[in-house]
Design a protein around this nucleic acid. Structure first.
Length: 923
RNA sequence: GCUCGAAUGGUGGAAUGGUAGACACGAGGGACUUAAAAUCCCUUGGCUAUUGCGGCUGUGCGGGUUCGAGUCCCGCUUCGAGCACCA
């Protein structure tokens, strides 16, 4: 009987499905384990071999945990809202839901062929009303809460309203857009609209007039993580800064908790670092500089309070509201001209253009410590969005200020002893302070760190400023001017944004005739008929961004059919949070920040019991494509083999990797590939045409896409699973190269061949030999440790070695072979299930018990002992493994002469490692 | 510029501070076969020696710690990733 992967895999996949093998329910008698994949966006191109890499890894871990006796939750779903479906809809007029469903079906059939252990009864789709009801619900809750800095958590907005009614803004401890001051009477006197506007300043989901990333080409705003280097991540279109009235989420309120939470979770250092960078905490001081001859104080933020005596000028961001307020009449024209010139530049141009530009406002500010008057400038190197949009410039100790000072010939005062500022600034935070003596404060002679602390203390005492922590993390812009997303459960009652009640949810996405903005420039929902409440109030036209649906989906899997809550209390208390999350690094500053924020918000509300959603996270590497090239000699239809191409002037041309095997081109199929190659001629080396290769992104245009369906068809799902894991360390990016797949496929055939000789099962009830058990237990130890470390590639090597040992030992022992199959089952579920049943088992191998490792069987009869001497002489002897260390030392000493130790050297220490080497330390 | 990670044969990659290159691919040789495929066996870091079971060298570069370093420490080089006029 031959190993027939097609027949075996189809049969067991059907069996698993028919018997609901992977369905899981809350079971308090067993410990839970939650293994999650980042759910995919179902694109039209389907899966390529890179996509399942993480899914295979998580599936192995899930099956392993189940064999270890855990109740494993391992769900899958689809991140179904997104731009590509909408753009396709615009082009073809097809409803995005139709194409999305089609893509999901395709994904599902591809996934099913690989033999994953998903509980599909828990599937979620973000575009499903039953799902997005809870996305809308969370948004309403965010609207109805504010962040209380005293309690350090989200609190109901009603308690803030109560505070306003009693004391006005006095003593309010809340994260807000800007500091407001009003009395209780003033609050009561406000109109409903004014009250609404005031509360927007505090709500966690709020409408704000903020500077947003506007992408004209996509016709929508984008969040910070959707923009990179001034262009949109999707499409690469230019993005400009624009002031717009948008829904936002006050993520910044959670900045410190998002930072602190990183301490308690097992993520890679690099990913944590990425998040720390993104949150961008910096400790410093906010300080006021009075503008001479006005009643205006300029607020600045600095991390270098010690350098105040070196401030020789100040700079405002062009967007700063202070610019108009302080510019003198003489400078009005120049300032206006400068600001106009900045406005015409896109964010990208501003970033690329490193030229120093700026303009003097005509105003002077007073240095609060030295009392000196300093000019105030405007320049685009100061960003409006960070800190206060104004800086104190210390050219001697900040490179950007230095460049500005040199360009406009402003004074540079060094503040640190020995700092040479003739060529460049001295940015290091070290050294002794000089030139830092004012009427009330003297920093001279202090170390920088000491001076910073001293200055902070001084300005707080004097009321000139206060110690402040700033974060780079901004609030998330939550509106998108698109169709294919969750509608906001918001209507406008006399212009006041009002939330719908939960019984009105889900608010269904309406039908529209076209998926484009309206003629008047409103978002696509502006085309919906009757897009208003029963009372006739208009409903919000924006939709939510992609990250809305993906921020809490892991919670929904715990309790996917609950109609009363996102997740019920019992399910939440049992499943708690994700124990293992596997996905790509590309979500480091998007999804993984938003999810943590969302979870913490729900945690504050008492809706979930864990403050962090993902306890352990593994980033699988990307699978790149391996493209092949042929080399056409210029102006001919002649192609030269890779090794000879340097002798000619050639153009490399991508060739379909399906026409190439081990870099050797199939000439006939190449001629048949494209009409223009029908008459191609070749210059061969050793009778072959050798193609060149390069590692590139896997994409259709490079003819290097490998479809997992083809691999499964030809080699089987088990081979695909093993090979994807065998390619290299999970977390490393690596190119796909189908060439090596024969190795693991041969291994499975050998395994099959060991069980079936000439069509009969060879398994017997023979008692295992000592060698059998040693091989088995070596494998148990290795594989158990490897799975825990996600070192799957080395496990597969261990399986191969163990098999060849068992073959050599002619092991037919049922006891040994059964355990071997259980170990292999997470990696290759189909073939192991088949052989497991062939051996007479009637229940699925998924419910077998993971073998226990027993040290007993590992005992070596002898161990090797290496005597090293001065790093040169090496002498090896063998001693019985159970010989006590003292005896070994004696044996070692007896070999003294043989090791030729020189005078004065004595044995210092003898280290005995069972099964390893014994080391004699001399000295 | 700051932060994190990596560098080992022709290739992917193994090595709790203890025989570097496991395992696999590829390549070369052989067996079986009319032939091919499949399968099996042998060789395979480099140099050198070779009808004797060997010798030398070798983990990006330069130092150091250690009886012993791919592994630990210091200083570089190169590549990758993240952040970045963030005050």
């Amino acid at each position: 009987m031959e190993y027939n992967h097609r027949e075996i895999e189809a049969r067991w996949q059907q069996y698993w499905k028919d018997n609901n093998i992977y369905k899981c329910v809350v079971d308090h008698s067993r410990p839970k384990f939650y293994v999650l994949d980042m759910f995919p966006y179902p694109s039209g191109a389907g899966l390529h071999v890179g996509h399942p890499l993480g899914y295979i890894a998580s599936d192995i871990y899930s099956r392993y945990k189940r064999l270890k006796g855990f109740n494993v939750l391992h769900p899958m779903g689809y991140d179904a809202y997104g731009l590509p479906a909408e753009q396709y809809a615009i082009q073809t007029g097809q409803h995005p839901e139709v194409t999305t469903r089609k893509n999901i079906d395709r994904y599902r059939s591809q996934l099913d062929k690989i033999g994953f252990s998903y509980d599909w009864s828990r599937e979620v789709k973000t575009c499903d009303p039953e799902f997005y009801k809870w996305t809308q619900w969370a948004f309403i809750e965010m609207f109805n809460h504010y962040y209380d800095t005293a309690a350090d958590k989200a609190m109901p907005i009603e308690s803030l309203v109560k505070h306003f009614e009693q004391k006005g803004s006095e003593g309010v401890k809340a994260v807000c857009g800007k500091e407001l001051h009003f009395t209780a009477d003033e609050w009561k006197a406000m109109s409903d609209k004014e009250k609404s506007d005031t509360l927007m300043n505090y709500r966690i989901a709020y409408l704000g007039n903020t500077m947003v990333n506007w992408c004209p080409k996509l016709g929508t705003v984008l969040a910070n993580d959707e923009v990179s280097e001034g262009v949109s991540v999707r499409g690469g279109y230019p993005v400009e800064q624009k002031l717009m009235y948008q829904w936002c989420l006050r993520v910044s309120a959670y900045a410190q908790r998002l930072l602190d939470g990183l301490e308690d979770i097992e993520w890679s250092d690099s990913l944590k670092e990425t998040q720390r960078n993104w949150i961008g905490r910096s400790e410093g001081a906010e300080m006021r500089f009075h503008v001479d001859g006005t009643d205006i104080d300029l607020e600045i933020f600095t991390t270098r309070a010690d350098t105040v005596f070196g401030v020789t000028f100040m700079v405002l961001a062009p967007e700063s509201k202070y610019v108009d307020m302080i510019t003198t009449p003489e400078q009005k024209e120049a300032v206006k001209e400068y600001i106009d010139s900045i406005k015409h530049k896109t964010e990208r141009e501003r970033m690329i253009d490193k030229k120093v530009t700026g303009v003097f406002t005509g105003a002077y500010a007073v240095n609060p410590l030295s009392g000196k008057k300093i000019p105030v400038w405007v320049s685009d190197y100061v960003l409006a969005g960070y800190g206060t949009g104004a800086i104190m410039a210390v050219p001697a100790h900040d490179s950007r200020d230095y460049a500005f000072a040199r360009h406009f010939d402003l004074p540079v005062i060094p503040l640190i002893e020995g700092a040479d500022v003739s060529e460049q600034s001295f940015d290091a935070k070290e050294g002794k302070m000089i030139n830092s003596e004012g009427p009330e404060l003297n920093l001279n002679g202090m170390e920088v760190k000491e001076a910073i602390a001293r200055t902070k203390k001084f300005i707080e005492e004097k009321g000139i400023g206060k110690v402040k922590v700033n974060y780079r993390l901004r609030d998330a812009i939550f509106s998108r001017q698109r169709y294919w997303g969750e509608p906001f459960p918001v209507y406008y009652k006399d212009g006041i944004p009002t939330m719908m009640t939960i019984d009105k949810l889900p608010l269904l996405l309406p039908e529209v005739d076209k998926y484009l903005p309206t003629e008047s420039g409103e978002p696509p929902l502006g085309r919906a008929q009757n897009w208003k409440t029963a009372e006739g109030y208009p409903i919000e036209l924006n939709t939510m961004p992609g990250f809305a649906g993906s921020s809490a989906y892991y919670l929904r899997y715990m309790d996917p059919h609950n109609n009363d809550a996102l997740v019920g209390e019992e399910a939440d208390n049992y499943w708690r949070n994700v124990d293992l999350y596997i996905g790509g690094t590309e979500h480091a500053t998007g999804h993984l920040i938003y999810s943590r924020f969302w979870n913490k918000f729900l945690y504050d509300l008492g809706k979930v019991c864990e403050p962090e959603p993902f306890r352990k996270l593994i980033n699988q590497g990307m699978i790149q494509g391996r493209s092949n090239f042929v080399y056409r000699i210029k102006d001919t239809n002649k192609f030269v083999s890779s090794g000879l191409k340097d002798d000619y002037e050639v153009t490399p041309i991508h060739v379909d990797i399906n026409l190439v095997s081990n870099d050797i081109l199939d000439l006939d199929r190449f001629r048949a590939w494209r009409p223009e190659f029908a008459t191609a001629e070749f210059i061969l080396e050793d009778g072959k045409y050798v193609c060149g290769y390069a590692v590139e992104k896997m994409s259709k245009s490079m003819f290097n896409v490998v479809n997992p369906d083809d691999i499964v068809e030809r080699y089987g799902a088990d081979t695909l699973r093993l090979y994807e894991m065998f390619l290299g360390p999970l977390e490393q990016s690596k190119p796909w190269d189908t060439n090596g797949i024969d190795g693991v496929n041969r291994y499975l055939k050998k395994l099959w061949g060991h069980f079936y000789k000439n069509g009969t099962l060879t398994v017997t009830d023979a008692k295992p030999t000592a060698d059998n058990l040693k091989t088995l237990h070596k494998l148990i130890k290795k594989v158990s440790a490897d799975i825990e470390n996600f070192s799957y590639n080395t496990s597969i090597s261990a399986f191969m070695i163990a098999l060849s040992e068992l073959v050599q030992q002619k092991c037919t022992s049922r006891e040994v072979l059964e355990q071997y199959l259980i170990l292999l089952a997470p990696f290759a579920p189909h073939i192991t299930e088949e052989l497991w049943h062939a051996m007479g088992n009637t229940t699925t191998i998924c419910d077998a018990r993971w073998p226990e490792y027993n040290e007993e069987y590992m005992k070596e009869s002898t161990v090797k002992m290496a005597v090293s001497f001065n790093g040169k002489a090496r002498y090896t002897i063998e001693v019985p493994a159970d010989m006590p260390a003292a005896e070994v030392e004696k044996v070692a000493l007896a070999h003294e002469g043989a090791a030729k130790w020189t005078d004065g050297k004595t044995v210092r220490k003898v280290i005995v490692v069972p099964g390893k080497i014994v080391n004699i330390v001399v000295g």
